[in-house]
Amino acid sequence: MDPRQAPPYVPLRGHPLTDDEFREREASTAWAPRLEYAWDAGIAISRFLEGLGQGAIYGVRCRRCGRTVTPPRAFCELDFKPMDEWVKLPETGTINTFSICYVTWDMKPLRVPQIPAVIEIDGTSPRVGFLHLVGGVRGRTVDQIRRQVRVGMPVRAVWKPPAKREGAITDILYFAPVRKRA
């Protein structure tokens, strides 16, 4: 059977909304919440974040089911047992899935899209990737990017310079496609 050809992707139209456009002219009550949190990362995620600060991706292995996962967790959510066999993982992985996004969270159009992706780090068990960005890709249109980014493609972490790392998931700037693994 012939695959049906989908129409080509077209860019979004429009412009950023102004405050006036947001607010209607009817009576309303406005409230700007001042909600602030400082989450205790806990035993497992703390060690993961410290590792990122040192340029390393850590995972943990479950002694019961044998899965190796990252981000690490203190217990295996499937076996309900503590998970404490730490392993240092490579900085390479595979794209499980991705999207090419042209709108920011606060509804501003993006000319250069962001590419969020699920990255399965090499050495972990299938389907336990983490969420990050794909970068180092030329072009702006869906077609240009899809020529360079594919499901199943190998990628490698691109890090912030050591002096600028802060023990956060953003210490990895993005994952860039690699032609062949090191």
Partner: peptide, 16 residues
């Protein structure tokens, strides 16, 4: 204060 444990880790301990 409970800076050592995340809420998930505390919940796991309570459930166990």
């Amino acid at each position: 204060l409970s800076p050592r444990q995340s809420y998930r880790e505390m919940g796991f301990e309570a459930a166990t």
